[in-house]
Amino acid sequence: MQPDGLPPLDREQLIQLGFIEARGRVLDIAAFLDRVQRAASAPGVPADALADDRVRALCEAMRLALDGQPERARRILEHWSDATTDPAAHADGKAARGVPRTA
């Protein structure tokens, strides 16, 4: 196995193998955004769906996915990463939320 990033299958074969699944996932993301936009805002929360930093981070990630540059998955994960470097004073609960609060 060569660590050169070259898959054993050619481009057409990979598209044949993965297109339907990827198509379904794109529709799921679109439907999620539709659902969020359709829903009423909770009291005291801005009406704009993009005001939620998690939804905004999702949309920013899609821009990275469409920029034509390689290593989209790595760059999206880095975009969604906590950029601080020092240990936290205390654990802020047990569960991470998916994107930093400042995203």
Partner: peptide, 13 residues
Amino acid sequence: TPHLEDKRKGTRL
């Protein structure tokens, strides 16, 4: 290594 947004920083630490 930590989950989600904490993984990169935690891996470095």
